[in-house]
Simulated assay, not measured.
Amino acid sequence: MTTATVDLRSDTVTRPTPQMREAMMAAPLGDDVYGDDPSVNALQQQLAHMLGFEAALFVPTGTQGNLCAILSHCQRGEEYIVGQMAHCYRWEGGNAAVFGSVQPQPLEHRPDGSFALDDIEAAIKPDDPHFAVTRLLALENTWGGKLLPFEFIQQATALAASRGLSRHLDGARLFNAAVRQAQLNGSDAYVEARRIADCFDSVSVCLSKGLGAPVGSVLCASRAVIDRAVRIRKMAGGGMRQAGFLAAAGSYALEHHVNRLAEDHALAQRLAEGLGGISGVQVEAPQTNIVFVDLVGPARARAAELIPYLKAHGVLASGLYRLRFVTHLDVDAAGVDHAAEVVRAFLAQ
Results as ranks from 00 to 15, higher is better:
338 H>T: 10
315 V>Y: 04
313 H>C: 07
223 R>M: 04
250 G>S: 11
217 S>N: 13
262 A>M: 01
11 D>Y: 06
73 H>A: 10
221 A>G: 13
188 D>S: 12
259 N>H: 14
86 A>Y: 09
202 S>H: 01
73 H>E: 07
287 Q>H: 07
101 S>L: 06
93 G>M: 05
315 V>A: 04
274 G>S: 02
12 T>I: 01
166 S>N: 12
99 F>K: 11
2 T>Y: 01
63 T>F: 10
83 G>A: 10
3 T>F: 09
197 A>H: 03
126 P>S: 10
168 H>Q: 08
345 A>F: 03
34 Y>V: 02
59 V>W: 09
208 S>D: 15
34 Y>F: 15
211 L>R: 02
229 A>F: 06
315 V>M: 03
188 D>T: 10
291 V>W: 04
198 D>I: 00
154 Q>T: 14
192 E>V: 01
222 S>G: 07
167 R>C: 14
244 G>P: 08
35 G>M: 02
159 L>M: 11
202 S>M: 02
294 D>H: 09
278 I>L: 06
178 A>H: 06
345 A>E: 12
332 D>I: 04
48 A>R: 00
248 A>W: 08
276 G>D: 02
171 G>C: 10
56 A>V: 06
199 C>K: 11
52 G>H: 09
329 L>E: 09
272 A>H: 07
1 M>Y: 10
52 G>Y: 11
166 S>L: 13
90 R>L: 07
289 N>R: 10
160 A>P: 13
56 A>H: 14
78 E>V: 02
58 F>L: 13
164 G>T: 05
33 V>Q: 13
56 A>E: 14
254 L>N: 03
47 L>P: 05
259 N>D: 15
213 A>Q: 09
215 V>C: 08
241 R>Y: 04
253 A>I: 05
281 V>I: 12
131 F>P: 09
163 R>T: 07
305 E>T: 03
99 F>R: 11
309 Y>K: 03
224 A>D: 15
93 G>Q: 11
295 L>S: 06
293 V>C: 00
326 V>W: 03
204 S>K: 10
107 L>E: 05
300 R>F: 00
56 A>P: 12
292 F>Q: 09
71 L>F: 04
140 E>S: 13
254 L>K: 10
50 M>F: 12
100 G>R: 05
227 D>Q: 10
234 K>C: 10
14 T>I: 00
229 A>T: 10
41 N>S: 15
267 L>I: 01
302 R>Y: 05
181 Q>P: 06
214 P>H: 06
177 A>D: 06
27 A>Y: 02
214 P>V: 01
212 G>K: 13
232 I>V: 11
203 V>A: 03
118 D>V: 06
27 A>E: 01
268 A>T: 03
320 L>S: 15
241 R>V: 02
69 A>N: 09
259 N>F: 00
239 G>N: 09
123 A>G: 08
317 A>E: 07
253 A>V: 01
311 K>I: 07
54 E>F: 00
